[in-house]
Design a protein around this nucleic acid. Structure first.
Ligand SMILES: [Mn+2]
Ligand SMILES: [Mn+2]
Ligand SMILES: [Zn+2]
Ligand SMILES: [Zn+2]
Lengths: 148, 148
DNA sequence: TCTCCAATTGAAAATAATTTTCAATTACGG
DNA sequence: CCGTAATTGAAAATTATTTTCAATTGGAGA
């Protein structure tokens, strides 16, 4: 996941390691939460002022392709991104603060087997995303409301 | 799922049963596949020429809210909709023809329990979507390629 | 270290997608 | 039927995303 690995992966695809790419990945990796393209742009621009929004869009696509980040889907206001550490990871997202926790072991084998048998579909991809309250936001929401 | 049920559900929310709403739901229910807002508009407009795209967007939101349809997410070109028969249904989508097969019993209890314990998150919502080839498209893709 | 060139970039413009406005219309409880 | 809140669709406004293209840059190879 570090710069070296990225550089390596990029080389394999005949792509270059650029400041723009480093900035975008860095932002998402350190954010520990999901971010929209616009938010990534805003934050990354601080580290690398010359950055353009177009490049952010292109970079997000690239990083998804390489598996460094994943697209998060919401009921409304779709399209946010979160960093991934695992090759096959999913996210557990806090609906209040946006924190995105990665998890693997999405054990869907049994379900998929049974569905393949029942429907004849040949399943190749799955999208799994869990949403709720992170421990911190959970505590806050329980705490007695203060003034007003 | 029929008109009567819809009328009833709408009444509970102080909403009216209109031709536009009937047209949109009918299209999605009979389509047996996922459709983008624009596609729904195109098709529904045939049954009800006076229909406006704005209304389609509003209606899709409403139907999702009432649980008659569900939003389908794709890696790219997000945002399609598919009808649902079950209160808690997910979709198995064919990546070639778009056919959307509904399934319930998404048995994620064990996974969620384990994650709640491990992370402290209080999980309340989950998004699960499976993609692959439907039996028909599967057969076609296997069949020897013809001319050219 | 220097060269060369494919890959990359960002501004601007073009598109696509979605939402807001608002005056006219319609569903439906009474 | 009436009265009225809900709905509608055209047009305009916003937002989101993609395309263009000339200038710049990373990095493989000399
Ligand atoms: Mn989505
Ligand atoms: Mn489920
Ligand atoms: Zn939180
Ligand atoms: Zn198919």
């Amino acid at each position: 996941m570090d710069r070296v690995t990225l550089h390596h992966d990029l080389r394999e695809h005949h792509r270059k390691l650029t400041r723009a790419r480093q900035a975008v990945l860095e932002i998402l990796t350190q954010a520990n939460r999901h971010l929209t393209p616009a938010a990534v742009y805003r934050k990354a621009k601080i580290k690398y002022p010359h950055l353009g929004l177009t490049t952010v869009y292109r970079t997000l696509d690239l990083l998804v392709e390489l598996g460094y980040i994943r697209r998060i889907h919401f009921a409304d206001g779709c399209h946010s991104y979160a960093a991934t550490a695992q090759a096959h990871g999913h996210h557990l997202v806090c609906s209040v603060c946006g924190r995105a926790e990665e998890f693997g072991n999405c054990d869907l084998e049994a379900l998929m087997k049974s569905l393949q048998a029942k429907t004849g579909f040949e399943i190749s991809v799955h999208v799994l995303e869990l949403m709720g309250l992170c421990p911190e936001c959970r505590a806050k929401s329980r705490a007695p409301k203060r003034k007003k």
